[in-house]
Amino acid sequence: MNKEITYLDQSDTVKDRFTRLKKRPVTLNVKGLGKTFATPQGGQVTALKNIDFTVHRREFVCVIGPSGCGKSTLIRILAGLETPSTGEILLNGEPVSGPCPDRGMVFQGYTLFPWLTVKRNVMFGLLESGRSKVTAEEEALQWIDLVGLSQFAESYPHQLSGGMKQRVAIARALANQPKILLMDEPYGALDAQTRAKMQQYLMEIWQNIDITVLFITHDLDEAIYLADRILVLKANPGEVNELIEVPVPQPRSPDQFLSPEFLATKKRLEELIHPPEKNEEKIETDQLNMVRMVSVNDEVQSVF
């Protein structure tokens, strides 16, 4: 059998894992979700249309799609920060509305409270839930330890690097023991190395605690590396394009980036997100209009 492997080919262990995964209880159920925004000009934009999907307990789902397809809108609706125009959301079978700590959120920007120390930031939700100061502090320190920032418990956010801030944000959301953790491009602003490390941390956290994750990204490698399944959206209006079961076996490691399953999945995602241009003429016109702009007498005549 020398047929090239596709993203649909799953090894027996992977196949077995997905059957077991789908037997787990459903944590999140999104049914017929749609969102239209009124534009200031008086028109309407359909950001999301007919989104249906389910996420099982302790599953890791990534959402990708072209810019502007409504990924942030989707996750903000799930977090209760935006109201859906149609459809409903069930969390463990119960309909939800409005923000609530059972759906933790990590934002793309840095949203730590700058006037609170790392410890107090993590304690914020715990105190809101009515815990005493002593228990809140104890629990907060445990979560800070989990993300490896014990030495920084008394630091203020402006003293931390971007990666550390996002780790605190994760600890802060996890401290409330949410049923699902929503993450909107949390590593979008980080450099490649920090990002790789953060992915590693997140994988470890996810493997060790009871948490279901919905993770938005525009980085294909990140999506394949992290996800059990990938929800691919398409733009205008934002609809589900495909729900891909990632054939790369768990547990993941960075060595798998070049495995055939990984590459096959990536190829598929690229096809979905950057569909091959059908209109040949369009490619012709979509080019830089370059004129030589180097002086004839310049010392460096050519870059080659």
Binding site: A79, P99, R103, G109, T111, W115, E128, A173
Partner: peptide, 23 residues
């Protein structure tokens, strides 16, 4: 976004005002 973050952490009306807006 600080207010939104606080809401997802369970802050309601009064604590939004006293624990987020004012500080």
């Amino acid at each position: 976004s600080l207010l939104e973050a606080a809401q997802t952490l369970g802050a309601k009306k009064r604590s939004l005002l006293f624990r987020v807006v004012i500080p």
